[in-house]
Computed example of a mutant assay.
Amino acid sequence: MGWQTEEFGSSHEGMVGAVLADGSEPKPVFLDIGSGSHMHRTTEWWAYDGKLSRPRADKARGSCSCGWRGANLYPIDWTQRDGDGLHDLDTSGPRDDWAQHIAEVESRSVPLPSEVEDLLHRLEDQLDALAAGAPLAALKAVAALERLVGRIGREAASTVEADELSWETIGRALGLTAKEARSRLTHVKLRR
């Protein structure tokens, strides 16, 4: 079970990763979850229980799809089980470490001007109230916002492309991977 933020999505999907006794990170495990040809792939801590020729994880840590790995290691006690008989691990430490990583990603991204951030919060509050009290008016406002966002987004994406920045630079500014940044700009340019 992974962690995501709305802002950074799959560019920074977090999870509890496994660490072997020698300090290395094991290769992904493939799990047969049905009769189909698809094999699920995971690197989550619980898959490394030493069964079915899989390595046994000694510790866990926060990890992120961007490649970040937490420095803090958390021991795994394979004898601990929850009420359903599944292995139990307090994941709050790895999750807190990942949350700190996300805070660092946010701090490296382009900041929004405080006036714009405040305006967005106020707009969200007003639209939430409108959706509860006058849902048709809320839908009309959302349609107007979509048109506005589409137009301004296309203008901004064209300007960014004209600046000829690298995808890595654009990604870092948005808190995304280079691949996700390229995808976002393409999506914004095609939005009507």
Score class of each variant (00 low, 15 high):
residue 62 G to Y: 01
residue 147 R to W: 10
residue 171 G to Y: 00
residue 156 A to D: 13
residue 122 R to G: 12
residue 182 R to M: 06
residue 37 S to Y: 04
residue 89 L to R: 04
residue 176 L to V: 03
residue 6 E to L: 14
residue 175 G to V: 07
residue 141 A to K: 05
residue 111 P to Q: 08
residue 42 T to F: 01
residue 122 R to I: 07
residue 187 H to E: 07
residue 174 L to D: 04
residue 73 L to Y: 00
residue 28 P to D: 13
residue 150 G to H: 14
residue 108 R to E: 11
residue 33 I to D: 01
residue 11 S to R: 02
residue 69 R to M: 05
residue 93 G to S: 12
residue 10 S to V: 09
residue 163 D to Y: 10
residue 138 A to P: 07
residue 106 E to M: 13
residue 10 S to I: 11
residue 147 R to G: 12
residue 22 D to Q: 08
residue 143 A to W: 05
residue 128 D to Q: 14
residue 83 G to K: 09
residue 121 H to M: 10
residue 29 V to S: 03
residue 107 S to N: 14
residue 8 F to I: 14
residue 28 P to T: 12
residue 84 D to G: 02
residue 75 P to M: 01
residue 157 A to T: 11
residue 135 P to C: 05
residue 155 E to D: 14
residue 158 S to L: 15
residue 67 G to V: 01
residue 52 L to E: 14
residue 31 L to A: 02
residue 53 S to V: 04
residue 114 S to K: 15
residue 11 S to H: 03
residue 39 M to T: 09
residue 45 W to D: 00
residue 13 E to H: 07
residue 179 K to P: 00
residue 53 S to M: 07
residue 24 S to V: 11
residue 131 A to K: 07
residue 167 W to K: 08
residue 74 Y to S: 05
residue 115 E to G: 13
residue 187 H to K: 10
residue 137 A to F: 09
residue 75 P to A: 02
residue 113 P to S: 08
residue 96 D to W: 10
residue 142 V to I: 06
residue 65 S to R: 14
residue 18 A to E: 00
residue 166 S to E: 07
residue 110 V to Q: 08
residue 148 L to E: 09
residue 191 R to A: 06
residue 14 G to M: 10
residue 173 A to N: 02
residue 46 W to D: 02
residue 190 L to H: 12
residue 107 S to V: 12
residue 113 P to V: 04
residue 88 D to H: 11
residue 64 C to F: 01
residue 115 E to F: 13
residue 13 E to W: 07
residue 172 R to L: 08
residue 8 F to K: 13
residue 95 R to A: 06
residue 155 E to Y: 11
residue 183 S to L: 03
residue 183 S to E: 05
residue 186 T to Y: 05
residue 171 G to I: 01
residue 70 G to C: 02
residue 145 L to F: 10
residue 57 A to F: 03
residue 156 A to T: 15
residue 94 P to I: 08
residue 159 T to A: 15
residue 184 R to T: 03
residue 112 L to Y: 10
residue 189 K to I: 07
residue 138 A to L: 07
residue 147 R to Q: 13
residue 189 K to H: 14
residue 96 D to L: 15
residue 100 Q to Y: 12
residue 103 A to N: 15
residue 74 Y to D: 04
residue 28 P to N: 13
residue 15 M to V: 08
residue 68 W to I: 06
residue 39 M to H: 10
residue 135 P to T: 06
residue 155 E to F: 12
residue 150 G to Y: 12
residue 59 K to I: 00
residue 39 M to W: 08
residue 144 A to H: 08
residue 157 A to S: 11
residue 67 G to S: 02
residue 128 D to E: 14
residue 17 G to M: 00
residue 37 S to C: 04
residue 94 P to Q: 13
residue 177 T to F: 02
residue 135 P to V: 04
residue 166 S to I: 07
residue 65 S to D: 11
residue 98 W to V: 09
residue 125 D to K: 12
residue 38 H to A: 01
residue 100 Q to V: 13
residue 55 P to S: 15
residue 169 T to E: 00
residue 166 S to T: 11
residue 181 A to Y: 00
residue 155 E to W: 12
residue 95 R to Y: 05
residue 90 D to P: 01
residue 174 L to R: 04
residue 110 V to I: 09
residue 120 L to W: 13
residue 148 L to V: 06
residue 166 S to V: 06
residue 27 K to R: 11
